[in-house]
């Protein structure tokens, strides 16, 4: 494999990883150092090990940093997507992704209904004095106020619970990924080029 091919494969394996450009520059320098010692590009490439495995190991290390702290929502989504894409066979990944999407959608709809309920309650309350007697309002204003605030809070906390679950699941995904790599001894070169 040539220097150019190696770097291209590594670049593909590192897509979306922070520090990717830094590693690519370092590997490029590695080839340059090898060349000064009279080593061919093919020799350096084979002693570096499979670029896809190197990329995978580097990804795992980059994710491990997220796994330590609490990643944001978008990082969580990326971690879950990465795990689905790399851990599961493609058909299972598609089904799992679909199920996750349906679950998230359903949860958002339920949260939305609660929020609407809250909003409706509040609107009724505000409009109550202006609505003619015999209209749909049966609740005394104070009860309506409590009901709307309650529904509103329920909606908000539902959304919050969903987001926390997402973050937690992302954190676990990161840990799992790192542990799996460590367990398998998934190091570049072990079954390398």
């Amino acid at each position: 494999m040539t220097r150019h091919e190696y770097l291209e494969q590594l670049r593909r394996a590192l897509r979306g990883i922070d520090g990717a450009e830094e590693l690519l520059a370092e590997i490029d320098d590695h080839f340059a150092s090898g060349a000064r010692e009279g080593r061919s590009e093919a020799e350096v490439a084979s002693s570096l090990g499979d670029p896809r495995l190197l990329g995978r190991e580097y990804r795992a290390v980059a994710f491990a940093r997220h796994a330590g702290g609490r990643p944001g929502v978008f990082t969580s989504i990326r971690l879950i997507a990465h795990r689905l894409a790399t851990e599961l066979p493609p058909p299972v990944a598609a089904v799992a992704g679909g199920a996750l999407g349906l679950f998230a959608g359903a949860a958002l709809i339920v949260a939305g209904l609660f929020a609407l309920g809250g909003l409706g309650g509040a609107t009724n309350l505000v409009l109550a004095p202006f609505i003619a007697q015999g209209a749909s309002i049966r609740l005394p204003p104070l009860a309506a106020l409590f009901a709307s605030v309650g529904f509103g809070l329920l909606g908000v906390s539902g959304c919050f619970a969903l987001l926390s679950a997402l973050v937690e699941s992302g954190r676990r995904s990161g840990r799992y990924l790192v542990e799996r790599v460590a367990r398998k001894g998934d190091m570049p070169g072990e079954g390398g080029v």
Partner: peptide, 16 residues
């Protein structure tokens, strides 16, 4: 050394 390449992920982890 396992593979020369494995030095780089290790260095990244040590830095993190």
């Amino acid at each position: 050394a396992i593979a020369e390449g494995s030095v780089y992920p290790l260095l990244r982890r040590l830095r993190d």
